Computed example of a mutant assay.
Amino acid sequence: MALQGTKAVFFDLDNTLIDTAGAGRRAIEEVINVLQSKHHCDEREACMICDKFQAKLLKECYDPSEMCITDLRIQHWEEAIQEVKGGTVNRNLAAECYFLWKTTRLQHLTLSEETRRMLIDLRKVFKLLLLTNGESQTQREKIEACACQPYFDAIVVGGEHQEEKPASSIFHHCCELLGVQPEDCVMVGDSLDTDIQGGLNAGLKATIWVNKATVTQKPTSPVPHYIISSVLDLPGLLSNKGATTLEINKVAGNCNM
């Protein structure tokens, strides 16, 4: 099998090992409830404010030399509230929304017991590295919240380096940290544009796409070597159990961030 000889496994964090999207939804629900119960917003206004915040978050362009991430995200809430409610900027309400959203999201970022056991077992055989894109403070807070540090030989946060995924440089940096070559490593992640494209750019042994929602690949998308529906399917793939199904997925993907 093509994965024989693998020495190291690189994991993405968000929506691969932890359900960041689900935690975010719970955080937004909490903010909507507080805006309605405490600040006299109707449901429509509260939902619109949160929708606008999330849209700003998706388009976020962060320059640490200009302001800290906390101030930037409070600013997102300020703008969202003003765009919906009008009037003067309400810094206090924006800060309340931000810290409630942040705290609630972090509370719901957990490694499942099954994921913990999988990482413990894999680490008996492979070197494990966590490679996550994003602003340093935000990603380090997530890492601390889900308490995943003990399960990895190294942790690399893209925002602390000159380039993030999918740049090959950060993958090669990861290889150097573990003392392995790119052809010894596989990348596991949920993003075709960053995880899979980055692994391909860096010349890794294989890329493994965690496609939880059974998303259909676009013709222009990078093609992963393997597709699994859950990160918990990884041990079976690495040990060649269930390889037939996964190899079929690989071939189908080849027909076609």
Rank of each mutant, 00 (worst) to 15 (best):
S168M: 06
Q197V: 06
S221R: 10
S191T: 11
I143P: 11
C148R: 00
L177Q: 06
A206K: 15
Q139A: 09
E176G: 12
T207V: 13
V215F: 08
A206N: 08
G198Q: 09
G159R: 09
D190Y: 01
I143M: 00
G179D: 03
H172T: 00
S229Y: 09
T214Q: 14
I143F: 11
P166K: 02
P182V: 13
V210G: 00
E141M: 02
C174N: 05
G159C: 03
G158H: 11
P222W: 11
E144C: 15
I155F: 09
V156L: 13
T220S: 06
P166S: 03
Q149I: 12
V215T: 03
E141D: 15
D190W: 01
W209Q: 13
G203E: 02
P166I: 02
H225N: 12
I155E: 01
Q139R: 13
C175T: 00
C185F: 08
E176Q: 15
E144N: 14
I227A: 07
Q162N: 10
S168E: 07
W209C: 07
T194G: 12
D190P: 05
I170Q: 09
H173K: 05
V223A: 08
L204K: 05
S191E: 07
T214R: 07
G199F: 07
Y151F: 12
I170G: 09
D193I: 10
L177G: 04
I228E: 13
P150Y: 13
I155H: 12
S221I: 04
C148G: 01
S169F: 00
C185G: 05
A167H: 14
R140G: 13
H161T: 05
C175G: 05
S169P: 02
P182E: 09
V223T: 15
Q217P: 14
Q197K: 15
A147E: 11
H172Y: 03
D153S: 13
Q162S: 12
P224F: 01
Q197C: 06
W209K: 06
E183P: 03
Y151A: 12
A213H: 14
E163V: 08
I228H: 07
E144D: 15
Q149T: 15
N211V: 11
G159H: 00
C175I: 00
A167N: 13
H172A: 05
Y151C: 07
C185H: 12
I208A: 14
L178W: 07
A145K: 04
I155N: 00
T194R: 14
S221F: 11
E163S: 12
A213M: 15
I208N: 13
Q162P: 04
G198K: 02
